[in-house]
């Protein structure tokens, strides 16, 4: 599903250049649940941004579902993002004046789905994350866990090939974190490919594969026995 070869990325910080990714080689099969771990500054968020086409790489190859991703202008990137990718952010990034249902429906709007169908679909996905009764509530009326579940429903609503989660539990307490991870595991069980960036070992243990990043290179890439989050909920 994802294939990365010799990926480099550096940021200019004044006169210095900060080499963040120093040749990443990495591939993900369909249906995998991968945790990308590393301390802050290891380059894990940068990698995710490049995977998510929110940022461009300096050199290297990136294929997503056999489509080469390079030299994208904003318009093309927007199209690909909408078609291939769903995002879950640490800070939820819901639009605060839209209610839960409208937030979930937003990617469908950009897929030119009509209004009625948007509403049906977004209700269906809200139901999947257990928030159907909260459909008309604004983000400010929801708890952190609920917000993240709305964000996951929104990411799923576009039916993406890959779900990218950047520290999805970073702003949540452990119990809520496990609830969110339980949801992510269930989505993965249905065959969706998911990448989770985290620095919490217990969250990483709940994935099927852990990739360790340190100083811009992959230092460890191992398959793990998945810990089900259900038992903690």
């Amino acid at each position: 599903m994802i294939e990365i070869k010799n990926l480099h990325k550096s940021y200019k910080m004044g006169s210095n250049s900060l080499h963040v990714l120093k040749g990443i080689n990495f591939s993900v099969e369909e249906g995998e649940l991968v945790a990308i771990m590393g301390s802050s500054g290891s380059g894990k968020s940068t990698l995710l941004n490049i995977l998510g086409m929110l940022d461009g790489a300096d050199s290297g190859e990136y294929n997503l579902d056999n489509v080469p991703i390079k030299d994208l202008n904003e318009t093309k990137a927007a199209q690909y993002r909408n078609k291939f990718l769903g995002f879950v952010f640490q800070s939820f990034n819901l639009i605060n004046y839209k209610n839960a249902m409208e937030n979930v429906a937003l990617p469908l709007y950009y897929q030119k789905v009509n209004r009625k169908e948007r509403q049906e679909k977004s209700l269906k996905y809200l139901d999947q994350v257990g928030l159907k009764e909260w459909a008309t509530h604004l983000p400010s009326e929801l708890s952190g866990g609920q917000k993240q579940r709305v964000a996951i429903a929104r990411a799923m609503a576009a039916e993406p090939k890959v779900l990218l989660a950047d520290e999805p539990t970073g702003a949540l307490d452990s119990k809520t974190s496990y609830e969110v991870m339980d949801l992510i595991q269930k989505i993965n069980d249905e065959g969706n490919t998911i990448l989770v960036v985290t620095h919490e070992p217990d969250i990483a243990e709940m994935c099927k594969r852990i990739v360790h990043l340190k100083d811009g290179v992959i230092v460890e890439d191992k398959k793990v026995e998945q810990v089900r989050a259900e038992q903690y909920v």
């Binding site: 998510g52 904003e74 318009t75 927007a78 199209q79 078609k83 995002f87 990034n93 819901l94 950009y110």
Partner: peptide, 16 residues
Amino acid sequence: TREIGIRKALGAKPWG
């Protein structure tokens, strides 16, 4: 600005 970022992440085109 943030909303614009969110919309772009969800697939909005700049001109849109």
